[in-house]
Amino acid sequence: MKKIIVSDPTLRDGNHALGHQLNVRQMVMYAAASDAAGVAIVEVGHGNGLGASSLQVGESAIEDLAMLGAVRAVLKHAKLGVHIIPGFGTINKNLKPAIEAGVDVVRVASHCTEADTTQRHIGYAREKGRVAYGVLMMSHMAAKEVLLNECRKMESYGAEAVVLMDSAGAYLPADVSERIGFLARNLSIPVGFHGHNNLGMAVANSAAAAEAGATLLDGSARGLGAGAGNTPLEVMIAVLHRMGYSTDVDLYKILDAADLAERHLMPKIPTISSLSIASGLAGVFSGFAKHVERVAAEYGVDAREVFRELGNRKVVAGQEDVAIEVAIELAARKGEEK
């Protein structure tokens, strides 16, 4: 039976959905439940990873090391994972103390065409004897051949697995099969997939990834995550088991963990908003949503059209200001049409 390693980013990506306000009590409670269910890796942190807490992208309710220390103490079987984006998180200030706090798995992420930025972080994690993954975000923006080259860079730096993130929730299952299958055939290290649910495809995409050769899959309780949310973990486990995959995760216990998360972590269950669908179709990171809504209201234009134009311009996280430019142009065009 083919085995899937399950990584649970509820306490990291889920922080996006909660303005990075998860507290220690919530983290400990959920981490213990996820651990008891048999999840292999429990990921913890600010939504954007180690060192990202800031006025720019949102401040965490608690510091990185406080989260890590608290969750470390309750994990009995699961490995403790972190997400780090070089630039947000530095080696000396963030990664070194995190490893000293007991992190087992370091997932070093970059935009899908910028794997070069991950070399030192991956190397450092390996030097310290930790498991290191390379993560390519916004992977729908690059062709499979480009993704393979970027993954090969990460492999050469010492990454022991690579994970494709569908950060904008833009993939359909056929897209996932094509990319994951191509990587799995051409890389010697395991390939993983992290879905987002903008088009309601996260579970189907994760299943397609498994069928195409992925052996690492991410899923969050009730899909708690950025934008329309991640792949709902409990649904993914049920589907994988139905498909004949082994995950080491106890279905009833992960259902209990999801119930617990719903009661104690989330003010409301993630839903696919109209704007999330627009951002997924446009292939734009869900983190743009608040900016887009604001500028659309300010300039009197349709937020969905702003997303569509942002997608045409292939914007990436950090280029949120472009939304203003787009809104101004759309408003001007609207004025001309009148």
Partner: peptide, 8 residues
């Protein structure tokens, strides 16, 4: 194969 490898 701790990461669920495909055994190339």
């Amino acid at each position: 194969g701790v990461l669920g490898e495909r055994r190339p």
